[in-house]
C-alpha cells in the first residue's frame, strides 16, 4: 500500500483561480466577463440599491434619509394605497389587453399579407414603420392625432359630417384609456405581424398538402397544422414584447402623463411622479420592485413557453 507516499501539495485558492483562468475551460467565462461586469454595474448593483432604498424613507431633498431604515413600511403603505392598486390593476389590464390584441391583429395581418403575391416585400417594409418609431414619438403622434380641436381624427369626423362636437379623446377618462391602448397596439402589432409572417413563410408545404389529401378543410388545416407550427414564433414575439412592455411609459408620459385626473395612471407613471416630483424615492423604489416583478413574470412565462415549444419543434423535425 502506498497511500502515504504521495505528498500532494493542495493548491491555494489564488493558485487555483490562476490555474483556472489559464485553462481552456475559462474561455467562455472570459468572453462573458465584460458583459457580466456591465450588467452587474448598471443593473444588478442599482437593483440592490433600489432594494435597500425601498426599505428606507429616502427623500431626494434630504440625502441622509437614505440610511433611515423603515422596514416594510413603504410596502405596507403601498398595500393600503388605493392609488397604487388602481395603477397596478390598470397596468395589468393594459398589458394583458394590448398583448392579446396585438397578437390577434398581428396574426391576422400576417395571414393577410401572406396571401398577397405581388409587393409582399414592400408590405413588409411598411409593417416595420412602427417598430423604428421611438415610443415618445408614437406618443407625440397620437397626442396630435387625438387632439380634440386640431387632431386628424376629429377633423376627419367633422369633414365627413359624423360629429358636430369634438370628441375628447384624451380628456375623457375612458376614451383616454382607449387612446393609449390604441397607440400601444399601433406601435407593437408589427412585431407580431413580422415574426408570424416569417413563420408562415418558413412553413413546410408537405404537412399542409398531406392534411388536405386527408380531407381537412381550410379551417382545420389552419387549426391543426399552421397554428401549432406558428406557436414558437408567437412565443418569440411575446417574449420580445414582454421584455420591454414598460416602454409604454414613454408614450403615456407624453400623451396623458397619467391624466386626466389619474384615469390613465399606470404603475410606471405613478412611480416617477412619486420618486422625482414628490421626491419619495423609498416609496417609488418599492413600486419599482413591483413593476420589475411584473415584467419578469410576463417575460419568464413566455420564455418558458418558447423553450418548451422549441424542444417540441426540435423533436418533431
Amino acid at each position: 500500500m502506498a497511500t502515504d507516499v504521495q505528498v500532494l501539495q493542495r493548491p491555494t485558492l489564488s493558485e487555483g483561480i490562476t490555474a483556472f483562468f489559464r485553462s481552456p475551460r475559462a474561455v467562455p467565462y472570459l468572453l462573458l466577463m465584460p458583459a457580466m461586469i456591465v450588467i452587474l454595474a448598471v443593473v444588478l448593483v442599482p437593483l440592490l440599491v433600489s432594494f435597500w432604498t425601498s426599505f428606507t424613507s429616502y427623500n431626494l431633498t434630504r440625502p441622509d434619509t437614505l440610511y433611515n431604515f423603515v422596514g416594510l413600511r413603504n410596502y405596507q403603505r403601498l398595500l393600503g394605497n388605493d392609488e397604487f392598486w388602481w395603477a397596478f390593476g390598470r397596468t395589468f389590464l393594459f398589458v394583458t389587453i394590448t398583448l392579446n390584441v396585438e397578437m390577434m391583429l398581428g396574426l391576422g395581418l400576417a395571414l393577410l399579407v401572406n396571401k398577397i403575391t405581388y409587393g409582399q416585400r414592400a408590405l413588409r417594409t411598411i409593417m416595420m414603420f412602427p417598430m423604428m418609431f421611438s415610443p415618445i414619438l408614437v406618443g407625440f403622434q397620437f397626442k396630435y392625432i387625438f387632439n380634440d380641436s386640431i387632431g386628424l381624427v376629429n377633423n376627419a369626423l367633422f369633414d365627413l359630417g359624423l360629429i358636430t362636437q369634438p370628441i375628447p379623446w384624451l380628456v375623457d377618462g375612458t376614451l383616454a384609456n382607449f387612446s393609449i391602448m390604441f397607440a400601444e397596439v399601433w406601435m407593437s402589432t408589427s412585431i407580431f405581424a413580422i415574426l408570424l409572417l416569417a413563420g408562415l413563410m418558413a412553413l413546410p408545404k408537405e404537412p399542409i398538402e398531406a392534411a388536405k389529401v386527408d380531407g381537412c378543410n381550410p379551417w382545420q388545416v389552419f387549426r391543426h397544422i399552421t397554428l401549432p407550427f406558428l406557436m414558437p414564433f408567437v412565443y418569440i414575439a411575446m417574449t420580445i414584447r414582454s421584455l420591454d412592455v414598460a416602454r409604454a411609459y414613454d408614450m403615456i408620459r407624453i400623451m396623458t402623463n397619467g391624466g386626466p385626473a389619474g384615469r390613465t395612471e399606470l404603475i410606471w407613471t405613478l412611480m416617477t411622479r412619486t420618486g422625482y416630483q414628490n421626491s419619495q424615492m423609498g416609496a417609488a423604489n418599492a413600486m419599482g420592485y413591483v413593476s420589475i416583478i411584473l415584467s419578469i413574470v410576463f417575460t419568464f412565462y413566455f420564455y418558458r413557453k418558447l423553450t418548451a415549444a422549441r424542444t417540441f419543434m426540435g423533436g418533431a423535425q
Binding site: 442599482p46 437593483l47 432604498t53 414582454s242 420591454d244 413593476s291 417575460t299 420564455y303
Partner: peptide, 24 residues
C-alpha cells in the same frame, strides 16, 4: 442560468431602473 439572467436583466423597466441609477 446565465443566459436567462441576461435576458431577465433586460426586462427591468427603464423607469424602475432610473430611480436607483439616478441616486448612484
Amino acid at each position: 442560468t446565465l443566459f436567462l439572467a441576461f435576458m431577465l436583466s433586460r426586462t427591468v423597466p427603464g423607469v424602475a431602473l432610473s430611480l436607483p441609477l439616478f441616486i448612484i
